[in-house]
Design a protein around this nucleic acid. Structure first.
Length: 276
DNA sequence: CGTATCCTGACC
DNA sequence: GGTCAGGATACG
């Protein structure tokens, strides 16, 4: 659930609590995190000063005084819970970082899928990432370049962090609804107009935390056209979409750009569900 | 390209 | 007691 905006907020919390502080101790409360952060890493963390907190996409980087980096990814349910060392632990605390001034921050994570790893100076722990979805430099042109060679559908393509960094299943689903684009369309088949709509839609869904328009609304009626929302599985994930107003083609002009793969969804061009 | 894996709470 | 969700990665 934490996508770019939530991770950005969490990184802000972490910055407030941890920046400039010196690590006094580290507790690893879950088997997974004892493995990710072995005793040698804990020893290196103790006494280190936090010099900066950075965020890229859904990744957080905790820069330390000796040049090493603690790389954090929340995955599904991770979050930071600030507090004092003497406070009782919050529910689902998996890792606790105590500072020498008596403050602490706990990584809480019901599903314990979060990762937290220490990297030596000079090592870049980040995987290949596209521009942040909120980066002003993220434009239709950039998206076009990232998608032009992809043969997969647009929805799973948006989840690929190399294409654009920070989108998860919910916001990718919402952005396609807002841009009125069929999530099954081949990524390379979108024309410039659609890409521009999509970039705008991505910015909007990330900036406003509005209630979901399509996500988790299977069987309910589309707020825009009244058609019944459907759920499909793409790349193993749920996609919700409206067959009535998320077009599979943008019009005659798009045909020039459509590829061989695009033809396979021609049968879906007509909405399968009538309105009302 | 698809599918399994990690992990646990929620739900049936 | 079984299934599902979900991000990223590993694998077939």
């Amino acid at each position: 659930m934490p996508e770019l905006p939530e991770v950005d907020t969490a990184a802000g919390v972490l910055r407030t609590v941890a920046n400039g502080k010196i690590v006094a101790s580290v507790e690893r409360l879950h088997r997974v995190h004892r493995r990710l952060l072995p005793p040698a890493a804990v020893r290196r963390l103790i006494g280190a000063q936090v010099t900066a907190i950075e965020r890229r996409g859904k990744h957080q980087l905790i820069r330390l005084g000796d040049g090493s980096t603690l790389h954090v990814h929340f995955r599904m349910t991770g979050d930071w819970e600030p507090g004092l060392t003497r406070d009782p632990l919050p529910p689902y605390a998996r890792v606790v970082i105590n500072f020498t001034d008596g403050s602490r921050v706990a990584l809480t994570d019901p599903r314990a899928l979060s990762t937290l790893t220490l990297h030596a100076p000079g090592v870049d722990p980040l995987p290949d990432l596209g521009l942040d979805a909120t980066d002003p430099a993220f434009t239709a042109e950039v998206l076009d370049r990232a998608l032009s060679k992809r043969r997969i559908a647009i929805k799973p393509a948006l989840l690929d962090q190399c294409v654009v960094a920070g989108l998860g299943n919910i916001y990718a689903t919402e952005a396609l609804w807002l841009a009125r684009i069929d999530p099954r369309r081949p990524a390379s088949s979108l024309d410039r107009r659609e890409l521009a709509r999509l970039v705008k839609a991505i910015r909007r869904v990330l900036e406003k935390g509005e209630p979901w328009s399509v996500y988790d609304r299977e069987g309910k009626r589309c707020h825009r056209c009244g058609t019944t929302i459907e759920r499909i599985t793409q790349a193993g994930r749920s996609t919700y979409w409206c067959p009535g107003c998320q077009d599979s083609a943008s019009g005659p002009r798009s045909s020039a750009k459509r590829t061989r793969g695009a033809r396979s969804d021609a049968s879906a061009r007509r909405p399968r569900t009538s309105r009302r």
